[in-house]
Nucleic acid binder design. Sequence first.
RNA 1: GGCGGCGUAGCCAAGAGGUAAGGCAGCGGUCUGCAAAACCGCAAUACCCCGGUUCGAAUCCGGGCGCCGCCUCCA
Length: 481
Amino acid sequence: MVDIKIKVYNTLSQRMEELVPLEGNRIRMYVCGPTVYDSAHLGHARAAVTFDVIRRFLQNVGYKVTYARNFTDIDDKIINKSRQTGIPPDEIARIYTEEYRRDMDALGVQPPDFEPKVTEHIPDIIELIRILVDKGFAYQSDGDVFFSIKKFPGYGKLSKRTPEEMLAGIRIDINEKKEDPLDFALWKGAKPDEPWWESPWGKGRPGWHIECSAMSMKYLGTSFEIHGGGKDLIFPHHENEIAQSEAATGKEFVKYWIHNGLIQINREKMSKSIGNIINVKDALSRWSREAIRLFFLSHHYQNPADFSERTLDENESALERLYITIKRASDLRKEGSLTEDRELANSLKRFKQSWFEAMCNDFNTADALGDLFELSRAINRSVDSIGWTPTLDEAIKEMKTLGNILGILEYQPDDYLRKEKLSKRPIEITEQEIEELIRERTEARKAKNWKRADEIREYLKSKGIILEDTPKGTIWRIKTN
RNA sequence: GGCGGCGUAGCCAAGAGGUAAGGCAGCGGUCUGCAAAACCGCAAUACCCCGGUUCGAAUCCGGGCGCCGCCUCCA
């Protein structure tokens, strides 16, 4: 059994609640994945990283987590893209699905247990719509099938507005096929040149919301613990999912609704129309994946996160600090005091506990990171004052473990400090040349030829290489900024 | 117009009744041939403003000001 109390903010109740599984210690979570018609951007990345960390944390404290994230691979946007490019819709979907997987992998996001695609679940979707029609929640109208929001009394409970309020601000075109302007499509009759599937209502394709109901219930059951996604999905997407699912099953669909805040660029929404989209690939060409994760995690997941190059640079520097700590502690000779470092042991205990408290408080990664940095300082202090002790090994191990739950500190220190950074800012010098110059400089230093030694260090610095003279010799790393 | 959120040091960002985490940048010191890294120290004295509740408020309440999101495809 899991004996730790985790509090989560539930969008549905608008308050913090204790996370309690519907049964046993199993947590099922479904997160809305991308519509695959274009490259993944930082918004997709944040959602993926947020729930990746939630999943890792829940697993770490002992929950058995089943995680599903869908691909919407048939949709108006895909069809439009196909028209623009001449590439068939299924090919568009295939290209961007693969790209999304590569991008998420590059960000260190672990693949979900299930990644269902809409086009592979048409029969499940049709079956769900049929149930809704049979129960009188949905009606057919000229080849389309609509959900009748009037029939579902709870409509608006997630987004906290009544149908009257929604109607007041409505800007959508009035569709005369609908009985009520707020009704939404479950099934769309095929127009000429559109992909279609056979259904009891004629040729067509699923509406946008029904897929997530059908697929989440298929893989996770008619009721499950966590459903997540970006805040922008609360209405209408998630509101509609609740209506469809609960109308069909008569049961509560999801216990906890979790929504991550959106990425902003210069205090402004990131969007196609503004033209300020930052792709995952572009971000990764400039910053390490862990610096990007650190950027997300240094904000509470519910808050907006304002992107800027400066902030990302700062996160890269901060990450470097942690890796340098690991490196200098790991490089110590395992000799000297075999007794434990009491002070470090106490710090370790304290910061570890504080870290878990932060994570249990609605996955407050920003707070938790503070503990990681404090642990880092405690480790450095121990290295400076005592040197190697068994406690030090333990502290480093723990620091990595806590970092790993956040999906950081997964590199070997040298791989991060040299190779990873090298790939971000190519330098015009080879590792061999660097090593050779370091040897020459070491000789110069032995001869107390400080002029030559400083010359070499300055030269390497101009190439983006930082040298450090340590008791064990000279080490190098790539300059951060 | 309706609904929701935000405003904390030069910058980023936690905290949400008990006297301001952490990171980046900066300054001073220790260490160093000099550096770098690390460590120590300094740095918010009204936490947007004005009132109120309280022994006590950045945290709660009321009123302003500024900014943002959703209501339309969107992570």
